[in-house]
């Protein structure tokens, strides 16, 4: 939790705390090791990359890309997924069979192939990237929300509300949705972690974020060529990704435990 908050603060404050402009190149200072290594330059805490850019500054700026993209995608995926899940769980029938079929079809196809195909065809573009990630994310929401809605719809208070003459929209909006939202928050949190990885993977393949915007995935694919010379250029962006994803996942697990103690330790 603390780590997640810290990362968000870092993302907001990146221009203030970063020691350098992340895009300033200085070929005379390329591939400098981290400060504590022999030959390290005290100005560059984590060293410099193949164009002489400060790695720490690039890491700090990278938080402004990975997280917002993952958040945006999860939000879109969440809205679509929750709505479809509610509708198919509440009304069942035809809506339900179409939604479940859609989910089934999507889950029976290797998603990264789809993402690669779409990004290759449309060309790298942040808006498309968000939509592609959202397309990955809606199924999880829809599946879980549908199941939960099925259960809740059978509860007596829902029957009571309907018996009192509440409209369908009111029943869904006032009686079912509030019971779904905590669950959706858990799915959303866990999803952000998965989408951060997916985004960095696509960027790594050159199909996601394009320079000059800093993306850790792209960073890693550039650094790959210098792996023999400069271990720090590949190590730090990956560590940063690991820390973000781990902390987001742990936060999600924690939320789930609070919400559903039965699942604790599973």
């Amino acid at each position: 939790m603390m780590v997640v908050l810290t990362v968000i603060v870092v993302a907001l404050l990146a221009p203030l705390i970063a020691p350098f402009d992340p895009t300033t190149q200085n070929l005379a200072l390329r591939l400098r090791p981290p400060r504590w290594m022999p030959g390290g330059d005290p100005r560059f805490l984590l060293g410099t990359d193949h164009l002489g850019r400060d790695i720490l500054s690039r890491l700090l700026y990278g938080t402004r890309v990975s997280l917002p993209i993952a958040f945006a995608a999860t939000t879109i995926g969440g809205i679509v997924g929750i709505s479809l899940g509610l509708l198919s769980g509440y009304f069942r029938g035809a809506v339900d069979s179409i939604v479940t079929k859609l989910i089934d079809i999507q889950l029976s196809f290797p998603f990264i192939l789809f993402a690669i195909a779409v990004m290759a065809v449309t060309g790298p573009n942040p808006a498309v990237l968000v939509l592609v990630l959202a397309a990955r994310s809606w199924t999880t929401f829809a599946r879980v929300v549908r199941g939960e809605t099925l259960t809740i719809s059978g509860n007596e208070y829902v029957l009571a509300a309907r018996a009192l003459g509440a409209t369908q929209a009111r029943v869904i909006g006032r009686h079912i949705t509030p019971n779904i939202l905590p669950l959706a928050a858990v799915i959303g949190t866990l999803d952000v972690g998965a989408l951060v990885i997916l985004e960095s993977t696509l960027s790594f393949l050159g199909l996601g974020i394009q320079p000059p915007t800093v993306s850790w995935g792209k960073e890693l694919s550039d650094a790959r060529q210098y792996i023999q010379l400069a271990w720090w250029t590949t190590t730090f962006p990956g560590l940063a990704l690991l820390v973000i994803v781990l902390s987001v996942n742990l936060l999600g697990d924690r939320l789930r435990d609070i919400l559903d103690p039965r699942l604790r330790g599973r």
Binding site: T234, P237, G238, L242, V245, N249
Partner: peptide, 15 residues
């Protein structure tokens, strides 16, 4: 397992 799920696997490959 938790760490394994958090590691971007292409980075693991690089490491």
């Amino acid at each position: 397992a938790v760490i394994g799920q958090g590691v971007p696997f292409f980075w693991l490959g690089l490491m």
